[in-house]
Every structure is written in structure tokens, then in C-alpha cells.
Simulated assay, not measured.
Amino acid sequence: MKSAMVEKEGFAALVLRLRSEGINDLDLLTAVEQTPRSLFVPPQYADQAYSSRSIPIECGAFMEGADLAVRLLAHLHVKPGQRVLEIGTGSGFMSAVLGRLSERVMSIDRYKTLVTAAQRRLDNLGLRNVVLRQADGSHGLTGEGTFDRILSTAAFPTMPRFFAEQLVSGGVLLAPLMTGEESCIIVRLTKTGSRFDREDLFEVPYLPLVPKMASFL
């Protein structure tokens, strides 16, 4: 882990960039500050923990840049007392921030290696309201009831159907949707009764979702 001073400087620089984008939610920024990103990046990339660059992690996955991670969380509008489903645990950074903002987080990833490493980091931070599970995220997470918020960090080829049953009325889904072979955009769906309002937000560098659990990683 980087020194406290370097961590503090990295966070301060991030806050300045986020505020220039109009992101100044105090609860969100406090949750990010309480979740040192240097704990979640591979040691060789520690000096880039708060940069806007994507960072490679195990299993051929990557950790989104700090700016994008917080921007996504800002668009999700998580509130205290809510239940959140995250599809794509990755490093566990967003899982941890979501845990500080909500009542309970269920986070799934197809790679056991990523789930195990993320669990270790969450344990070190003392976060007990985040449950990690190795699972196929193609159909959300069945058998766990409904969620107030669903966030995916793997891109779907078409808008997924599971959210209709797994989102509460008033719930929000934030997910990347493929728009070409190598391009995708973040789509936000808000459920009102049986109706869904769609907003196309911005392009993101996410990889297509791979179905089924990984057997060897």
C-alpha cells in the first residue's frame, strides 16, 4: 500500500477532476476516500491507482480508471438501506464503495481467483455487508430476491431481460451495451411499475460478458 500522504494526494487530484465533471456527491466521495484504491491494484501499478487509466488485473480482466469508476457510481444514485447487485466483481473496489453506501451488496464474478482476492481485500477493510460469489452473470442473480440497484461492468450484446424481475419498482440498472464489435455504451434503465425509461449515457471500454463460470481461474 502506498503511504498515507501519497494516497491522500491521489484522492485529492481525483476529486478535482470529478468536480470539473459536476460530480460532488459528498457521501459518494467520502465512501471513495474511505476505500484506498492502492489496496485494489497490483503492486506494480500502485502509482496509477488514482489515474484515469484502466489497470490490468488477474484473469485477463481490468480495473476501470478511478474517474470512470466513480462516474458510474454517481449515475447509479445508491442510497442508504438499498440492496445492490454488482455483476463483475473484478478487483472489488466498486464492491467496497457500494458497501459503504448501501445496506447490502451481492457481487458476482465468473473467476474464482478474482472473487477470492476481492474477498481478502474486503475482509481487510472490515466490510461485512458485501457478499461475493462465483457465478455466471448472464442472467443476473436468481434466488436472491429483488434489488434496488443493479450495476454490470461486463457488456451485454443486447439489453438483458432479467432486470425486469430482479429490479424493484423505482430501481435502476446501469449496464454496458455493445454497439459494435469493439464499442459499447453505458445504458441506465429506471423501472417505474412495469415501464422502463432508458437513457444512453456515454461510451465505455468494457469487454463483452462471457457466460458460465470459469473452470480453471
Rank of each mutant, 00 (worst) to 15 (best):
Y45W: 12
T153C: 11
M178C: 04
R195T: 02
H139R: 09
F163K: 11
G170L: 06
S102F: 08
R110A: 02
R133N: 08
A31L: 09
V131K: 14
G137Q: 01
F202R: 00
D123T: 05
P43F: 15
D148P: 00
I186F: 15
V78R: 04
L174Q: 06
L72F: 07
K2T: 08
D197E: 11
V204D: 00
P43L: 14
L209V: 06
G180E: 12
L73N: 00
M106Y: 15
E165P: 04
M63T: 03
A13E: 08
T158L: 13
G90I: 01
V84D: 04
H75C: 03
F11S: 05
F11G: 02
V41C: 00
S102Y: 08
P208Q: 07
K212A: 13
G10R: 01
A4T: 13
Y45L: 03
P176Y: 15
D200Y: 15
Y50P: 00
G81E: 12
M63V: 04
A69Y: 09
A118M: 04
T142M: 09
L217W: 10
G170M: 12
V78G: 00
S91A: 12
E86F: 10
P80K: 15
C59H: 01
I150M: 09
L85H: 09
Y50T: 01
S54K: 13
L28Y: 04
R149N: 10
E165M: 05
V187C: 11
R188G: 08
M94W: 04
Q119F: 05
E144Y: 14
E199C: 09
T35F: 14
S194D: 06
I23R: 11
E203Q: 13
D123G: 03
A4G: 08
N124S: 11
E9A: 15
P43E: 15
P160H: 08
L217M: 07
A154K: 07
F162L: 02
E21Y: 12
E144D: 05
T30D: 12
V84N: 01
V32I: 10
L122W: 01
F62M: 02
L114V: 01
S169V: 05
L167A: 08
S52G: 15
Q34W: 10
N124H: 07
N124Q: 11
E165C: 06
S52D: 15
V97F: 11
G88K: 05
Q134L: 02
C59V: 05
Y50M: 05
S102G: 10
E21C: 08
